[in-house]
């Protein structure tokens, strides 16, 4: 009789372990690929909104999105010529990123910015600051940094800023309840 009970407990423990291994965390993982203002705004609104819902949020910045994390005031120390050229052609920070459509040589952009101000919508800068305060983790794709010729010393000061590769992203994504690519 006792043996049966013990076996049952072992079986249950095994099942719980199995379930725990597949259970998703209350976590949002998002690839932020786009370097366009409207998409970045959407990404950061979702990210800060998710932390408000008590979710853990992990952002993985790749390709064009990294430009938005450059600090306008900082200068990169030393770069090769090609990196320097590519870097110079990319936006430098949140105030420099453009709209995806309806940019209309900047007219659409300034219209959106003034509307946002009037309607009290947070700017990209504010959203980044809030995200930092709420503990949103930002991981930057190292390969994209090299690709775009950007260097770590020109990035913004952000509380939880890390550099990693795709392995880290996937490990995070697998255990997240929600995965997005923006």
């Amino acid at each position: 009789m006792e043996l049966v009970a013990e076996e049952k407990i072992l079986e249950l423990e095994r099942r719980i372990k199995q379930l725990e291994a597949t259970k998703k965390k209350d976590q949002l993982s998002m690839v932020v690929f786009s370097g366009e203002l409207d998409k970045l705004l959407a990404a950061m609104i979702i990210a800060t909104g998710a932390t408000a819902m008590d979710m853990e949020v992990k952002l993985f910045f790749t390709f064009w999105a990294i430009s938005a994390l450059r600090d306008k005031e900082k200068r990169a120390k030393k770069k090769e010529l090609t990196s320097k050229m590519f870097g110079a052609m990319l936006p430098k920070g949140t105030s420099d990123v453009k709209l995806s459509k309806m940019n209309m040589a900047g007219a659409g952009l300034s219209m959106l910015k003034s509307l946002m101000k009037k309607k009290n919508v947070a700017s990209l800068d504010d959203l980044l600051k809030t995200a930092g305060e709420l503990g949103v983790e930002i991981n930057i794709c190292e390969m994209s940094m090299d690709l775009m010729g950007l260097s770590k010393d020109e990035m913004i000061d952000y509380p939880d800023l890390n550099y990693c590769g795709v392995g880290t992203y996937l490990a995070d994504a697998e255990e997240s309840a929600i995965q997005l690519f923006i």
Binding site: E142, C164, G167, A171
Partner: peptide
């Protein structure tokens, strides 16, 4: 020589 690997490979290995 890829900095991101420093975080990646340990994470992958542990998994």
């Amino acid at each position: 020589a890829d900095e991101g690997t420093k975080k990646d490979i340990p994470k992958w290995a542990t998994k």
